[in-house]
Structure formats: structure tokens, C-alpha cells
Design a protein around this nucleic acid. Structure first.
Lengths: 334, 334
DNA sequence: ATGCTGGGATACATCGTTGCAGACGATGGC
DNA sequence: GCCATCGTCTGCAACGATGTATCCCAGCAT
């Protein structure tokens, strides 16, 4: 069997509870006693049993992260940074893939997954604010992304609208007039896709450029969907001189399809994305995109969640944090 | 407070233990009793407390996955598939990033992380077989990748040497004679890089082509290192007509640098990678690479680990599983 | 001396579950 | 009619830690 606190207590000649007190940095312990306990711990190679601690204290020191698919580069990079941020505060991150499935998202919210974690970082994609509110329970919950902007929930996001507007303005400034958008989600308006599309339209309006619905292609946020969307546009005969992928993998799929079809980028068509994943910098041509400040997002969302856990943050209404952004102008849309 | 088994027992008019038996599918329970318990569970909305179960049973239903960096596409895709495979068997996966740091890898092996998991999927990068054997403990451990091939450990890997040989043969068959290799790790010979390099040399030997050490560029397995390696080769004046990136991100970094420098791919230089990450298919030009059968790797490594856990697999020596591979011939090296 | 204060350590109950051993009534063989 | 067996269910202890309440003693004021 493993060494328990009881063994340590016996070895140090103190009570079980004193060992516990030493481990939990209880203030009033004589230095000599503390030393004896620590020596015993070192000698026996004692390691606290986290399961027992969790059962007794009700805390797991784990944060849950719910996202659709860990193999998507944006989520992979985000997860990596979140884990590092959490680790700095002594927490681990347990990841759950929802596949954007409503049932899976609900399960993550109330099932065993929730039980295993002290708080949740949640990227809802297919369920709404009311469904969440009804099942959120009492443990803290921080939303990531902007599918749900609701005063009831804490939210960490970026200035999607502003960023999309700035990026579109950049394309317009480069002389592009017919900017196709791919990856739109027609059903929603408040989600990430909706906000970015809104920013696009604002930029058009500001520049006095017309909005043409024929240029808006729906699609899931995957490389193949980006390629398919561009293929559809090309085949339909709609003219366009730029493509704005609502995220980077869409834009990279589009880029691929354009080049295959013999369309020169950026000469004939400029391409821009959103997210600034590592891959964007090394695409050929390299991809113009928006950097959402992922480090800041990761750091602040963990900080907010931990503030809720510790009770440092007590606001009744949801706290909304917005990170900054930066345009990354590269070869695909100079 | 949450609903406990005790509440269920009272509601159903049975003992605590009977509820436990129902939950654990104990054979000898009268259908009527079982039904009553299940009704009570449904009515009260009871959910088993996993922490308490873990403490009592000594099992967590979590598998540990140790890798260097979740943001690397290969690991992200692998982690995603492993999580899905584990979920199919009722297990969760807890990921730990080691950053290829020896201390972090040792910690994952014996620290709290190990305690939280029933078994480990381990991608060692910086520590050796002896260090692992000395600290492995008694919980099952399955190695991923081939940094460590040792009869003491279970291992799931792919035919690195054969695959690299086949890929190199393909390049040679295409008329390439001076194939640069980037991402070599000169210090090691048994690791992944070493095995792939070995396959490369075997292909050269078989074709009667000379081996030139000047064509071997070391580097970490990242995009920027791939770009830097190619830049170094170009600047040094060494001639080459193909680049074999020991993994895809290296090759993609190399591809990027070649195109920036005005080198035509594949006309002047062919480029090939290894891993077949999603991105390879959508690169421009699309990347010739080796598909390691990641689905199979994920499925079989989880199966092996669970077989060890359940005692279905009892081999004294390590079980070594090799998945198949397929060449994916694409535009970058047709 | 006595009472009070507060630092330092302890005993005991408790978190929610599962393993073990045994109880109980009904059945069946002899 | 007795004992062994079988199916079904139960009680108790235990997993390894923490919270609560309490106790003891030294130091100080009264």
C-alpha cells in the first residue's frame, strides 16, 4: 500500500491532524514540529492522496474545458495555453470534446464531467443561454467565444466585430470591392460568425460599398468546407476579388482551392482569415489574418474562473472580458 | 447537498448496499428490486459521486496522456482520437504537456498526475528507458512513438523505418538524387528521428545512391525550425533537389521558405513530410507524406492499455504493436 | 494563588462509495 | 426431517483525507 498520512503521523510522533495541518500551511505550528513532520514526509516519500482530499474537501483542482474538437488548430492552441495558465495556478485542465452536439454539451454541463471539475471553461456551440442557465448548477462557469453573450454569464472574448471590420477595411483599402465571406452561419446572428459578418457589413457601409448576399457562403469551420465554399462560388460564376474566411482554416481551405483552380493569390483574389494560428504564418502565400491575443484570452479566462472559485470576484451579473486584437498583414492580402 | 446512495436506498426501501449492487450490475438481484431502485434513482435524479467511488475502488476511469505540446497538430489530432477511443470504453483522458522537459516527464510518471489516472499513454522525449523503469510504478504504461523501444514496456508505434524508406524510394524514383533531410536529432539513433533517418539511408543504399552528411540538417520539429533548416541549406550553397521533412510541420516550414526564396516546388525541389496531418492535404502545393494510420494507433493503444488494466493482457514482456502506413503522393513530390 | 488568553496540538466524526462476510428463506437431495 | 445449496439482500468496516470542537499548557494580569 501507499504511504498515508497516518504513517507519517506515527513516524513523526504527532497526530494525523497535525500532519494535515502542516500540509495545509496551518499557521500555528511550532517550527520544530513542522520540521519533524516534513522530515517524516520526505523520509517515507509520502504523497497526498488527491482522491481522498477531493472527497473530503469537495474540490478537485481541475478545471473543465469544453470545446467541439481538439484537433482544430485554434482549439488545440487555446487548450495548450489554457493548460499552461491553469498549471501556473496549481490547476489541471480536463478537456471534453462536444463535437458541437447539443447532447454532448448538456452532458458536459451537468454530468460526471462537471463533477470532476471545480469550474468550467465552456465554448457552447449548439445550445442556448436558457438551456445553459437551467442546467448550470452552482459551480462557476466562464464562457469562451461569443456564441452566447448574456448578462447571466461570465464571458471572455475578443472584439470580433471591430476586428472583422478592420480586416475588411484593409481589404477595401487595397482596392478590393467584391469580398466574398465564407463560413457564415445564417441561422445565428449573435454568434461568432454573426459578429464577424456584422463587422464586415459595417466596413462596407463605411466605405460606401454595396453588400451582395450572393457573396456570402455558409459553411462549417473546416478546411474542406472552405475549399468547397470557394469551389461553389467559382462554379456559380459570381465575381469576387477577395475572400474573407471567418476563421483561418476556412481561409486556408479557400486558398488551396483558388490556387488549384489557377486563381492567383493575391493578384486575382486576396485571401484573409481570422485567428492567426501558427499555420497562417507559414502558408504559401502567408495568410493575412487577425490575431485575437490568445495568450491574453487564456490568461484572463483562467484568472476569471479562479477568481469566481476563490470568491475574489463576486459580481452578481456576468463579467465580460474583451481581449485586444491585431491585424497581421501578410502576402495573401497585402 | 447532492442526492446520495443513502437517499436512494431510503426511497426504494432497500439497503445502501443493494443500491450499490444495482449500480454495479451485480448479478443476483430480483428484477422487481432492481426496478424499484432504478425508479428511485430516476425520481431523485441521483448521480454517483465519482470521487467517493474512486477513493473506495482505487480506480479513476481516467487515462493519462503525456505529450510535449498539445498545440502541435500531430499531437492535437492524436489526442482528439485517443479521447474518442477512450470515451467509447467509458474512460476519460487527462492530458499533461511535458514541453519535452525531463523534469516534467518524470513528474507525469510518478507525481499527482499518475495518481489521477488508471493508466498512462506516454510519449517520452527526453528521458530514457531506465529512468522510466525506475519510476514506472505498478500502474500500466503504454509508450507511444518510438523514442523508447524496450522489451520492458508496451509500445504502440508505426513502421517508421519502412515508411521513411518507401517515401525516400518514391523520391528517388521521381529522379531526385540529392535529398536533404531536415529535423534530424544527431544525439539519438533509436528515436523516431533516428528510425526515419535510417529508413532514408536504406533507400539510398538500395538505389545505389550516395549518402551525403551535408544534406542532413538537425532541428526541432516545428514549422519555424523547418524553415530555418532550409534557409541554412540554401545559404550554405549545398545543392539538393528534394527535402524530406521528418515530420509534416517541418516539411511545411521548409515548403514555405523554399517558395519565399523563389524555389519552385516540385519543379526545382520536391518536398515530402511525415504524419499526414489535415493541413498537408490543403497546403499549396499539397504535401506528399506518410499516413501513419492514426486512427489505428489511437484505437489500439487505448485497447492495449485497457487490456492491461483489466488483466486481459498478461504478457510479462512488453507488447509491441505496429500500425500500417500509406504513402500519400501529392503535388509537392508527385 | 486564581482566572484569562491564545498558541499548539489532538480526537472524533465525516465525505459517499465499495468489499467482505454473513443472514435469511426457499429449494432439493438423501 | 435434516443438512447443504442457492439466490437475494444486508450490515459493517474501510478507503485517506479535512472540519469542528476541544483540550492542554505557558504566560500574564489580577
Amino acid at each position: 500500500m501507499a504511504v498515508t498520512m497516518n504513517d507519517v503521523a506515527k513516524a513523526a510522533g504527532v497526530s494525523l491532524k497535525t500532519v494535515s495541518n502542516v500540509l495545509n500551511n496551518y499557521e500555528f505550528i511550532r517550527p520544530a514540529t513542522k520540521q519533524r513532520v516534513q522530515d517524516a514526509i520526505a523520509e517515507l516519500g509520502y504523497e497526498a492522496n488527491l482522491t481522498a482530499r477531493s472527497l473530503r474537501s469537495g474540490k478537485t483542482s481541475m478545471l473543465g474545458l469544453v470545446l467541439s474538437d481538439l484537433s482544430a488548430p485554434y482549439y488545440a492552441e487555446l487548450a495548450s495555453k489554457l493548460m499552461n495558465a491553469a498549471a501556473r495556478h496549481g490547476y489541471r485542465v480536463l478537456v471534453e470534446q462536444s463535437d458541437a452536439d447539443p447532447g454532448a454539451e448538456l452532458n458536459a454541463l451537468q454530468g460526471p464531467f462537471r463533477q470532476l471539475t471545480d469550474g468550467l471553461l465552456f465554448t457552447p456551440l449548439s445550445i442556448g443561454a436558457d438551456a445553459i442557465a437551467g442546467r448550470a448548477g452552482s459551480k462557476p462557469l466562464v464562457m469562451l467565444g461569443e456564441h452566447i453573450v448574456d448578462p447571466r454569464f461570465d464571458l471572455v472574448t475578443m472584439k470580433n466585430g471591430e476586428a472583422a471590420q478592420a480586416l475588411t477595411a484593409h481589404l477595401l483599402a487595397g482596392g478590393r470591392r467584391r469580398i466574398a465571406v465564407i463560413g457564415a452561419h445564417p441561422e445565428e446572428s449573435a454568434g461568432t460568425a454573426g459578429l464577424r459578418l456584422h463587422g464586415y457589413r459595417q466596413a462596407l457601409d463605411q466605405a460606401g460599398a454595396p453588400f451582395d448576399p450572393a457573396l456570402i457562403a455558409p459553411g462549417e469551420w473546416r478546411r474542406d468546407a472552405g475549399a468547397a465554399a470557394v469551389a461553389g462560388l467559382l462554379d456559380s460564376g459570381v465575381e469576387f476579388d477577395a475572400v474573407f474566411g471567418l476563421n483561418d482554416v476556412l481561409a486556408l481551405g479557400a486558398l488551396h482551392e483558388l490556387l488549384i483552380r489557377g486563381v492567383s493569390v493575391p493578384r486575382d483574389v486576396a485571401v484573409a482569415g481570422f485567428d492567426d494560428i501558427d499555420e497562417a504564418r507559414f502558408a504559401s502565400p502567408s495568410l493575412t489574418t487577425v490575431s485575437p491575443g490568445m495568450d491574453e484570452i487564456a490568461e484572463r479566462s483562467v484568472a476569471l474562473l479562479l477568481d469566481r472559485l476563490s470568491g475574489r470576484e463576486t459580481a452578481e451579473a456576468g463579467v465580460h472580458v474583451e481581449s485586444g486584437f491585431e491585424l497581421r498583414i501578410r502576402e495573401s492580402a497585402p
